[in-house]
Design a protein around this nucleic acid. Structure first.
Length: 849
RNA sequence: GCGAGCGUGGCGGAAUAGGUAGACGCACUGGACUUAAAAUCCAGUGACCAUAUUGGUCGUGGGGGUUCAAGUCCCCCCGCUCGUACCA
């Protein structure tokens, strides 16, 4: 028998699929479509295990849906703009374009070795001008329709990357890539009006039935809708006002101070008028930026000499503080403090010795307790609040808002935490923003005929700051309107811009416009999207926004891009350290008698925690090495077999070897007999053994189908293994036995094919089939086999299983009771007559004594 | 702090709608083959007791409850993981 040689058969079938274009797909309105997409990678150089998991999941779905008669779209491309290319350029003095293209070539080869069923003719790379010219056009459309605008704001500045970050890219006060503490800086930049869709983005989350609850919740929290009121506090001395946003207008009578953010508009004025404030403020801002990552910074306020009038009590004046805990980004950058009913305000009041007025009481008409030890934030009835007294919190909210509106001192309002998306980046390796600044004509968009605005080549990246701003030959252009001297915008887009619409471009990547509506209408939305949870808000929210915006501009006819979303868990591996506490690569370690040693110098190595694979901890396994050694089918099988996709999984040598062992055994099963001249035919069983193997086959078809539909691929594999074990034990004595065995093996292969396609193609051929297994329809169950007339009935005494009995389904309750009560293992328990007998037909019987 | 999720053998994990807990695999143990090892094959494998069975007790983080019956439902508690963080 020829031994299983994965590298040979995998090359053979990869070549076959490519040459025959098996996985190319075209619009075909007669066929039902299925669009499966995995998040496309950044071409960093090599694929890692996370990619292997992601793309194996997608490939399984694609092949499964194909077998189920769908016209499947399964494309792949490259998210190829981004900072690593620039960093590599600086470090190794290579052109980012060259570096990126080389990486793409390499990673594409690696992906091809995995045997993924992509339609490679649809491949796109976002750094190609052919791709980003459409993006520039989309931006211009956004701009012309008021969905993109320029403004000066306080931005998140990453001092290491020397660029602006979106709020979403700031994690724990640090840059999401650089880990540097983010600074606040005033800058001009381009923004997309995502807030215009805040309500739609929030509301439509409810339609995303097949998204993980967790992701939906994260998006809801990110959008952060809250109901309340804008309230004006007038400052007579300077004839100005402070507008605050509050969700608790009912507690207005308990207001004892106003706090504004250090970045608030009024602060500039105060700084000029009162030097001592400016002085105090430098200290405050120091705290604000540098210690933000410490647990909770101390709440500090600077008392200003100004006083504001209370909207309901004309004679009451309220102190105004500049406080470090008030966020300029949220609401109006100003709040009123009600210490009795907000813990933060309470702490602040205690510190600065401010009045604490209780205005909500738990019980109706209850008097004040006076000695609050903490704020009371729960429901209750209003007290000490003039016209609001006696009302519930909710009633008081309504009444106070109405009153504010009457007095023209405020209004009902809804606030969102979501801010407009700042897309300007001071980087070279990104899509140029198609804008021209003319002294005479102002901001001009680049005319469509001049698109794309291509990135200049041979740029010096060694200098710090924005590289494009130093390219004078590129910057200087003629104004499209007056033909006078003008300058290009030197910022490039945030790279999330590219990934916000690539899935739509895949539907016709060569089309002259960004979107071929005819194709998009057929293929979109993406039926199954698969990727990492880390994109729960960033990429997934931006993409939803893009689709809604493009829909509004009639560029696309779609409301939500992704019907079903699955997020995969991380891949973990044991960590190792040597005696110098240095991380060690698993590939450099050998295990002897449960102890670990370095392969190089035999020194002792100590195993550490099982952690998420990361380059820094060196606990990585190179997929290419695994594929070269065991074959892609083994890697695919193992990565699916151990854990459900959503959960983290541990990569172990033993696991891979177990997978490899299984495939070798399948190979032996296929090659142990010659089935070429046996018909692939469904025939009836003639004895119990035939019946059992057919029943097992049909059960497996049923369970594997269910498991794949529910994204429980580990269960699919468990069931496939059960069928395999049965097939291995099935004895062939007659010609009919062999026909049955071939039939069952064939179905087994079709079930295994989405997981291990190369081995299944080869086996399929060995069985004597002329056509690729990729064209074999998913098998169907024969329900007749599920109508067994006998069933094993467990017998319980007082809920405890004591025995079981084989019964015929045709027996009635009386007959079964009689049978069970006379069962020899049961009679000994029946010292007294049973009190009660519960019989669940064909499932269980419980005797209560 | 808030929000979400999870907790089942030595390990990864199964268990439709409350109905035989531990499927499938990994690891381990014993046996066969071998001069030997590896590989492979066969058998066993939740814990404890036992007259060693085809017997029994316990057992799904802990405690209580509902039910004929609870991993699954309800209440309280503990632990872990993830997300988020002054959101007014």
């Amino acid at each position: 028998m020829i031994s299983y040689n994965p590298s040979k058969i995998e090359k053979k079938w990869q070549k076959y699929w490519a040459e025959k274009n098996i996985f190319a797909s075209e619009v075909d309105k007669k066929q039902k479509k299925f669009y499966v997409l995995e998040m496309f990678p950044y071409p960093s150089g090599d694929i890692h295990m996370g990619h292997v998991r992601n793309y194996t999941l997608g490939d399984l779905v694609a092949r499964y849906k194909r077998a189920n008669g769908y016209n499947v779209l399964h494309p792949m491309g490259w998210d190829s703009f981004g900072l690593p290319a620039e960093n590599a350029a600086i470090e190794n003095n290579v052109d980012p374009k060259y570096w990126t293209e080389k990486n793409i070539k390499n990673m594409k080869n690696q992906l091809k070795k995995m045997g993924l069923s992509y339609d490679w003719k649809r491949e796109i790379s976002t750094c190609d001008a052919d791709y980003y010219k459409h993006e520039q056009k989309i931006f211009i459309d956004f701009y012309k329709n008021g969905l993109a605008y320029q403004k000066e704001t306080i931005v998140n500045w990453d001092p290491v990357e020397e660029t602006v970050l979106a709020n979403e890219q700031v994690i724990d006060g640090k840059g999401w890539r650089s880990d540097a503490i983010v600074e606040k800086k005033r800058m001009k930049g381009w923004f997309l009006k995502i807030t215009e869709f805040a309500e739609d983005l929030l509301k439509d989350i409810n339609n995303l039935k097949n998204w993980p609850e967790k992701v939906k919740l994260m998006q809801k929290n990110w959008i952060g809708k809250s109901f309340g009121a804008h309230i004006d506090f007038h400052i007579k001395e300077i004839n100005d006002k402070i507008t605050v946003f509050s969700t608790r207008p009912d507690t207005l009578f308990g207001a004892s101070f106003i706090a504004i953010s250090p970045q608030h508009r009024l602060v500039e004025k105060l700084k000029n008028d009162y030097p001592e404030i400016e002085k105090a403020l430098t200290k405050l801002e120091f705290k604000n930026t540098n210690e933000q990552n410490l647990d909770r910074i101390e709440k500090i306020g600077i008392l200003t000499p100004l006083k504001a009038s209370h909207p309901f009590e004309k004679n009451k004046l309220i102190s105004i503080f500049i406080a470090n805990f008030v966020l300029i980004d949220y609401g109006t950058g100003a709040v009123f403090g009600c210490p009795a009913h907000d813990q933060r305000d309470f702490d602040f009041a205690k510190k600065y010795n401010l009045e604490i007025i209780e205005v909500v009481s738990k019980e109706k008409n209850k008097r004040i307790r006076n000695n609050l030890t903490c704020a009371y934030a729960e429901d209750g009835y209003l007290i000490n609040s003039g016209f609001l007294n006696g009302l519930t919190v909710n009633e008081a909210k309504e009444v106070s808002i109405k009153k504010l509106e009457e007095l023209n001192l405020g209004s009902r309002s809804i606030n969102y935490r979501l801010k407009d998306w700042g897309v300007s980046r001071q980087r070279y390796w990104g899509c140029p923003i198609p804008i021209i600044y003319c002294k005479a004509c102002g901001i001009q968009t680049v005319p469509e005929k001049d698109l794309p605005v291509k990135l200049p080549e041979k740029v010096d990246l060694q200098k710090s700051g924005n590289p494009l701003s130093k390219q004078s030959d590129w910057i200087n252009v003629k104004c499209p309107k007056c033909s006078g001297n003008a300058k290009r915008e030197t910022d490039t887009f945030d790279t999330f811009f590219e990934s916000s619409w690539y899935f739509a471009r895949f539907t016709d990547p060569q089309h002259n416009d960004a979107i071929n509506k005819k194709n998009a209408d057929y293929w979109l939305p993406v039926d199954q999207y698969i990727g990492g949870i880390e994109h729960a808000v960033l990429h997934l929210l931006y993409s939803r926004f893009f689709i809604k915006a493009m829909n509004k501009l009639k560029l696309i006819n779609l409301n939500e891009p992704f019907t079903s979303l699955q997020t995969q868990g991380m891949i973990c591996h044991q960590t190792y350290k040597n005696s110098n506490n240095e991380w060690q690569f698993p590939k450099d370690i050998i295990k002897e008698n449960d102890k670990f040693f370095s392969i190089k110098d035999k020194s002792k190595v100590y195993p550490g925690r099982i952690e998420k694979m990361s380059k820094s901890k060196k606990n990585v396994i190179d997929p290419t090495t695994i594929i070269d050694k065991f074959g892609s089918d083994t890697a695919r099988f193992f990565i699916l077999s151990d854990s459900p996709p959503q959960r983290d999984m541990e990569w172990t040598d033993e696991g891979v070897e177990g997978a490899s062992r299984f495939l070798k055994k399948v190979w032996q099963l296929i090659n142990a007999d010659n089935y070429v001249n046996i018909p692939y035919q469904k025939i009836r069983h003639s004895d119990q053994s035939d019946f059992n193997i057919l029943l097992c086959t049909y059960k497996t078809i049923k369970y594997v189908t269910q498991a794949i539909d529910n994204f429980h691929f580990n269960l699919a594999i468990a069931n496939i293994r059960i069928l395999f074990n049965e097939l291995n034990m099935y004895k062939v004595r007659t010609k009919n036995n062999r026909i049955i065995k071939k039939y069952c093996i064939s179905n087994f292969l079709i079930l295994l094919n989405p997981i291990c396609p190369h081995m299944c193609e080869e086996s399929w051929e060995i069985l004597g089939n002329q056509q690729s297994i990729s064209f074999s329809p998913w098998p169907k169950v024969d329900l007749e086999y599920f109508n067994e007339n006998q069933v094993i009935l467990p017998i319980q005494i007082n809920g405890k299983r004591r025995s079981e009995v084989k019964i015929s389904k045709s027996l009635n309750k009386k007959e079964i009771e009689k049978l069970v009560l006379n069962h020899q293992a049961i009679t000994k328990f029946l010292v007294q007559p049973p009190k009660k007998i519960i019989y669940v037909p064909n499932k269980i019987i419980n005797i209560v004594i």
